[in-house]
Simulated assay, not measured.
Amino acid sequence: MSHTVLAINPGSTSTKVAVYDGEELRFEEEMRHSYEELKQFESILSQLEFRKSKILDRLNARDFDLNELDAVVGRGGLLRPLKGGTYEVSDQMVKDLQIGISGQHASNLGGLIAKELSDPLGKKAYIVDPVVVDELIPVSRISGHKDYERISIFHALNHKATARKVARELSTTYEESRFVIAHLGGGISVAAHMNGEAIDVNNALGGEGPFSPERSGTLPLSTFLESCFQEGMTKEKLKKQLIGEGGMVSYFGTNNMLEIEKRIEAQDEEAELIFKAMAYQVAKEIAAVSVHFKGDLDAIILTGGLAKSTRFTQQVSELVSWISKVIISPGEDELLALNEGTQRVLAKKEKAKAY
């Protein structure tokens, strides 16, 4: 039986929606939100009615009847740490999304909008594999100081969707597989996936792991500590150094990797060196988490938008192919991943988890 699902993915400056009939995409829409539109809102939460009305306008323009829906799914936001899977949006989840229990981000609106659209229909709302998926094993939580515990924040939705896709291609299941997966995008996260769980991963929002187009990754801590006490330095400035103004942005003023590659083609030696260093740091992180598998690894998977760069994936692959075979699965289709998680629940292949 084919189930009709509306998937909603709110981003910082856009809202994407799609309607699926089973695995088949019926249509997809993207609404861009300008700075002028969003600056009128005091908070992420206050954008809810604005974004919901935009979605309804697009659906009406498509002559789509909401009564056709079997479920609505939204991008999972910054909730309390939880295991991977598809979760029904509960009253407690709504409260935690509203207050931003683990922080404020546009993705917090995903579950809230899904709930508001599904309730009048008598249908259920879901989220799938939010960024706060935490499946770390005890040894992976240890930081090196008792006052600081490592936490798991990463691109869980794409990690797990890609893992399931590659597992099918290898004629097995995610739950039976042993992968190291590197999501290569504006942020970079590298995880050890063992038998259906991400048992170790760098905190992609917390100053860990490889640097990326706009994030600094792991910095020399003693040097960073000194900069914290420089005159005029603020917590906000330090945060921007880590996220938004780190990585390639700090070196070249851009997070556009196509521009960096054009510089390399024009014989820019500095661009070539920094590009190579980013690939090296990704490879080093892959090698680090590979120790969990003791040589018994099914594949290393490179995914995300930057995995479309042949130059970058070749450089990473050359450094890690001795560990295991490397599979390139470029891009990240978050709406499709949201739909797949919901379809598994509707088809009773998987049980929705309680938050």
Rank of each mutant, 00 (worst) to 15 (best):
D63P: 04
I243S: 06
K262M: 12
G304N: 02
K39V: 00
G304L: 00
T254S: 14
R80A: 14
F50Q: 00
S189P: 06
K52L: 00
S53L: 08
H3V: 07
Q343H: 05
T172P: 04
N158R: 00
L109F: 01
V72P: 00
G85H: 09
D298N: 14
Q241Y: 12
V89Q: 00
L338G: 03
I300N: 07
F154G: 08
A266W: 10
M257H: 11
A71S: 10
A204K: 05
F252K: 08
V128F: 12
V73I: 07
G305A: 02
T342M: 02
E226I: 15
S222N: 12
K353I: 13
Q241P: 00
L45G: 01
L97A: 04
G341M: 05
I137D: 06
A182Y: 09
V190S: 06
Q241L: 14
G144D: 09
L205V: 13
E245V: 06
R80W: 09
N158Y: 06
G305C: 04
E350I: 03
A114E: 00
S212V: 11
L121P: 00
L25S: 13
D333M: 02
V345N: 07
S212Q: 08
D65N: 15
L242W: 11
H155E: 10
F211V: 02
G207T: 12
R51Y: 00
R62I: 05
L184H: 08
D147R: 11
K349L: 14
E269I: 13
P81I: 06
G209A: 09
T4D: 07
R75M: 02
R178D: 14
R80Y: 13
T234R: 04
K146M: 10
K284I: 04
I55R: 03
Y148C: 12
S12C: 02
E36V: 09
Y251R: 10
L117P: 05
A271Q: 13
R178W: 02
G74N: 00
Q92P: 03
R26D: 08
L157V: 05
Q40C: 03
D147F: 07
E259D: 11
L112T: 00
G11P: 04
E334Q: 03
G85F: 07
G295K: 03
